[in-house]
Amino acid sequence: MTQELIPTTGTHPLRTRGPGRALYAAAMATDLTALLLLGLVTTGLLRTPDPVQGGAVFLVIGLQLLARKLRSRAWWYVPLRDAGPVPVAADLVFWSAMAAVLITLATVEATGRAGSWAFGAWFVVGTAVLAAWLPSTDRPTPEPPSAWWTRTVPMLAAAAVTLALAVGDHQVGVGTAAVVAVGIGAGTVGVRLLAARRVRAAKPA
């Protein structure tokens, strides 16, 4: 016997009472835990044997996959036709917290407390840029996409701060950092143009 799911009111899991909100909040907490764990291991603040350090990367990937699954499941409790964008405030706070973790990681490495850029500035910059550019994939269609700037702006800010710290620590030259910054800016514009084109192509004529 199939049991029909009766969704609660609301336009987003965080705006619904019950399992939807709990699942989405758990997904956010899982994502933050994954990034924090990655930061602790890569900076050397969490001393582990080499095999454990390498295995931690797979644990982080597993946590991120779990977070994605929890988000997708949370949408079961929201009426599909009435679903709106991610609440800007909640999304901005979440990605700002993610950016803060990356900046903390970069600061710890730049100050030499973990062996002076144990994984390098490029690791942190690449992580931030990848998060800024990749489209949101945790929403089952046909829900609308989340507000892109609430994720892109904090992540690009984290990348910029990391580059500045690397330059100040003489790990990256000023010219190299400038070229990378221009490349990130151009890439971001390109990504947004492609995203806008996909949205226009998906709209009915």
Rank of each mutant, 00 (worst) to 15 (best):
G173T: 10
P145G: 09
G18T: 09
A83T: 13
A29N: 01
Q171D: 10
P144V: 12
T43Y: 04
A178Y: 02
T16D: 02
F123T: 14
R15F: 00
V179R: 07
T176V: 12
A26Y: 01
G175T: 14
L36F: 13
L105P: 00
V108D: 01
G20F: 01
Q3A: 15
T188K: 01
A26K: 03
G120W: 04
W117E: 07
F58I: 11
S96P: 04
Q53N: 05
L105R: 10
L65R: 10
T150S: 15
R81T: 12
I61C: 11
G84I: 03
D91F: 06
V125I: 14
V153S: 06
I103N: 05
A99G: 08
A157N: 03
G10V: 08
V60E: 03
D91W: 02
A26I: 02
A106S: 14
E4T: 15
L105G: 04
A158Q: 04
P79G: 08
A178R: 03
V174N: 00
E143G: 10
T11E: 07
E143N: 12
R139N: 06
P135C: 09
R151E: 07
M98L: 14
S96W: 02
R21S: 14
L102T: 02
T9P: 00
S72W: 02
A56C: 07
A106V: 09
L63K: 06
P19Y: 03
T11W: 00
V125S: 03
R21K: 11
M1L: 12
T42M: 09
H170K: 07
V101R: 03
A74W: 01
D138L: 01
A89Q: 09
T107E: 07
W122I: 09
W149S: 14
A201V: 10
A131V: 13
P87Q: 07
P87S: 07
R21D: 06
L163T: 03
L37K: 08
V60C: 11
P135T: 07
T141S: 11
R17P: 00
F119N: 06
T9L: 13
A90M: 11
L65A: 14
G190F: 04
G84T: 08
A56R: 05
T111M: 10
A83D: 11
A97D: 01
A22G: 00
D91N: 12
P87N: 07
L36A: 15
Y77W: 12
F119W: 10
V108M: 07
V108F: 11
L38D: 12
F94S: 01
L194G: 02
I6M: 11
W149K: 04
A160V: 13
L130H: 06
V57R: 11
V78E: 02
E109P: 02
G55Y: 05
L5A: 12
A110Y: 02
A128Y: 01
T111V: 10
R113Q: 12
A166N: 04
M1K: 08
V172L: 15
V93M: 10
M155V: 06
L105Y: 04
A90G: 03
L45F: 11
G187S: 07
R73W: 08
